[in-house]
Design a protein around this nucleic acid. Structure first.
Length: 218
DNA sequence: TGCCAGGCCGGGT
DNA sequence: ACCCGGCATGGC
């Protein structure tokens, strides 16, 4: 799909390199990825600020925190009870199987690590791929609601395409760069799609006229 | 004001 | 294999 490669040039020319994911450490990236499930990033930032202030942005220390206390700290991120449980199920795996070390967790084949992440209650395909790509150093393309919306509006996929279908489409279409550039390319590609999704391809009031992808509309 | 946000799970057909 | 309700805060 040549269109997908053109799309990147257009988005990148408009927005510049995004240097994603926003987060100081791989662990912060993991926490942010779980907290941002169906939630705006501004709310997640408040929750992370609370975790920093409480000095629990660390696997073992966060896992030592009672679930109810964790829930109160992440309250601004919404769904705080269920997200506290999900964070803890991730942390239990990280602490009990990998001694709290992300380096150990991510040490292995992408498919193997991905399967392990997906087995954690509260980690679905998008979260797993975000962890792999932005915290784990693995090349695993992230598909989200914006990706599907943008792709289906351009007829690059069907409206009811499922997650793995779109993921495979991206991974095979965006494999042309030299190995040294591919990782950054996939990271930034997803970040660019979020920019388009937020500002030009929202559900309500899409602004296709000013969208950098307008030249590619069907 | 109502709708939406960088999902995922569990229970029901 | 789908379909759906629930989860919850903050911004526009």
């Amino acid at each position: 799909m040549r269109q997908l490669r053109r799309a990147y040039r257009l988005m990148r020319a408009r927005f510049g390199h995004q240097h994603w994911w926003p987060g100081d450490t791989p662990f912060e990236v993991c926490v942010g990825a779980i907290l941002t499930q169906n939630t705006s990033w501004t709310n997640v930032e408040r929750a992370i600020a609370n975790l920093k202030a409480a000095r629990v942005l660390d696997a073992k220390r966060m896992f030592a925190l009672p679930e109810a206390e964790l829930a109160q700290l992440i309250r601004p991120a919404g769904y705080f009870n269920i997200k506290a449980r999900r964070l803890r199920s991730f942390l239990r795996m990280l602490v009990e199987e990998f001694d709290g070390s992300l380096a150990q967790l991510f040490d292995g084949k992408t498919a193997t690590v991905r399967a392990r992440l997906l087995a954690v209650n509260g980690i679905g395909p998008e979260t797993a791929d975000s962890l792999l790509l932005y915290a784990g150093g693995h090349r695993s393309f992230v598909v989200d609601a914006y990706t599907k919306r943008i792709f289906s509006r351009h007829h690059w996929c069907s409206a009811d395409a499922d997650y793995d279908e779109v993921k495979m489409l991206c991974e095979s279409a965006l494999d042309e760069k030299p190995v040294s550039e591919r990782f950054d390319y996939w990271q930034d590609y997803h970040a660019q799609l979020v920019m388009v999704g937020k500002h030009y391809c929202r559900k309500r009031e899409p602004r296709c006229e000013d969208c950098p992808l307008r030249p590619l509309l069907p």
